[in-house]
Design a protein around this nucleic acid. Sequence first.
RNA 1: CGGGGCGUAGUAUACCGGUAGUACGUAUGAUUCGGGUUCAUAAAGACCGGGUUCGAUUCCCGGCGCCCCGACCA
Length: 485
Amino acid sequence: MAAPVYEKKALTKKSENIADWYHDVVLRAGLAEYADVKGCMIIKPHGYALWEHVQSVLDAEFKADGVRNVYFPLFIPMHLLQKEQEHVAGFSPELAVVTHAGGEELAEPLAIRPTSETIMYATFANWVQSWRDLPLKTNQWCNVVRWEKRTYPFLRTSEFLWQEGHTVHADEADAMDMVLRALDWYRAFYEEEFAISPYVGLKSAGEKFAGAERTYSVELVLPDGKALQAATSHYLGTHFASVFGVNYLDAQGASQVAHQTSWGLSTRSIGGLVLVHGDDSGLVLPPRAAPEQVVVLAVGSKSSDNAHVQSEAANIADELKHAGIRAVVDTDLLHSLGYRINEHELRGVPVRLEVGARELADGKITAVRRDTLTKSSVNRSDIVTDVQTLLSDIQSSLLERSEKLKRELTKEAATWEEFTAIMEHGKAFIRAPWCERPECEADIKAETKATPRVLELDRIDEHIETVCVKCGEPAHRRWLFAQSY
RNA sequence: CGGGGCGUAGUAUACCGGUAGUACGUAUGAUUCGGGUUCAUAAAGACCGGGUUCGAUUCCCGGCGCCCCGACCA
C-alpha cells in the first residue's frame, strides 16, 4: 500500500492539487488511515468524533418526528435481493457475497448488505397489516458494503457507515411528505452544522436509486467545481411493497399496497466537509461540528513562569467548558510552539487562544480564528462571551464563504458551445434547459463527463418554452449539471 | 474490468548477487520554546512460493497485496 506521508513537510497546496491535498489532510489531520483491506479505511478518533456529531444531530431530528431505530442483519439471502429487478440489477456489480461459513459452502450465498431495503421490507410485510399500523417509521445506523472499483477515503469506500431511514405509508401524499421532510433534515444539517450551502432537488431518471420511483438529493459544490452527492431521499412508490407484500387493510377493509420511502446520509459527508472548508494549513472545522472548538495554548518561555502560564491556560479552558464550549488545553512545552500551532491548525480547531507571559502581564488573551488565521486580543475577564461570539462568527462566515463558492461555481448555459466550454475550462455546475430524455443524458455524459445533478426543488414546477441545451428537443425546465466525484 | 506502477524498519525512500543506507517518527538525556529548535545515544526492516547460483533482498517465473489512471458506480 502506498503510503501516507507523515513528514513534517508542508501540505500539498489545495489550489495546486486538490486530490493530493485531500489525501494529505485526511491522513495528517488524524481523520482516517488506510486499512489492510482494499478500499477500506480506519476511522480514527478525530474523524469518528465528526461522525458522532452527525449521528447525534440527525438522530434527534428523526426521533422528534417519531422515527424509531432498529437493527437488521448484515447478511441478506440472495433470493431476497433478487426480488426487485431494477434494484438487483443496480447493485449486483458491487456486491460482496459470502459463499462459505462454518467451514462449509452455504446452500444459499449471503450478500453483505449494500443497503437494506430488501431484508427490511420482507419483514415490514409482517409488521404492516392494518391502516392503523401506518405510518411505520424506522431508521438504522449501520455499515454497508459496496465493492466499488475505485475508492477514496470517506468519499467512496468499500465499507461505509451511514443511516438508512425506511418508512411505510398509506398513500403517495403521506410518503412524499416524508421524503421531502427527510431531505430537508439533510439540507438543514449541512447548512447549520457543516456550514455548507448545498443544492437540493430531484434526480434524473439515469441518476435515481435502483428501484425508486423518484430520488431527491443534496448535492455539494466542491471547490474544483465537481459535485458530491451528499444525501439522498427516495420515494419508492409501491415497487418494493408489491414484490415484498407490504400490504394493509384500509378502513373499509380493502387490501392496499403501501407506499414507501428510504433516505440516507453516510460518512461521505465528512469528505465533503473536508473538501469544502479546508485550506493550505489543513482542516477547517465549523464550530458547531468541531469536536474541539477551542484550544488553549500555553506559550512558554525561558523568562516567564511557565507553571503559572500552564495553570492559567487550564483555568481558561475550564471556564470555557463550564460555559458549554468544547475546549481543550495544550500545556505541552516539550514541543516547539510552531509545531503545536501547526498541529492544531491541521486538525481544524476553530479558535486558538494563546496564553503566555505577555497575556499574563496585560490581562488580555490572544485569540486566533482558524478560518481566517487572523489574530485578535480579548480581555481576560470577557473570555467566555468573546469566545462564544467568535465561534458564532466563524460558523456564519464559513456558511457565507460556502454560499459564495456555490454562486461562483454555478454558471448558466443556453447553448452546447457554452456548456462544453465551461466543462473544458475549469469545471463548474451548469444550469441549463434540458429535454430530460435518458438518451440525451447519456450523450451529455459521454461528451463532457457531466451528468444532471438535480432539478432544484423550486424549479420542479417551472415551465419554460425553450429547447434542450444538448439535443435541441423541447425543454421546459433548467437542470443543474456537473461532473460527479 | 482494461492500462500503468509498487511491495525494503512504524512511515517514506536508497543502494546492492556476498556486513541493507538515509530521513521522519519512536525511546532516553540534554538544549530550545511568541510559528514545524538543535544535538547525542538507542531500538527497529527485505510480501509469499518456486527457480538460477557456492551464495538471492537483488536476477527469472508464479502467486498474493496495494496504489494510480480509465471504464463503472449510492
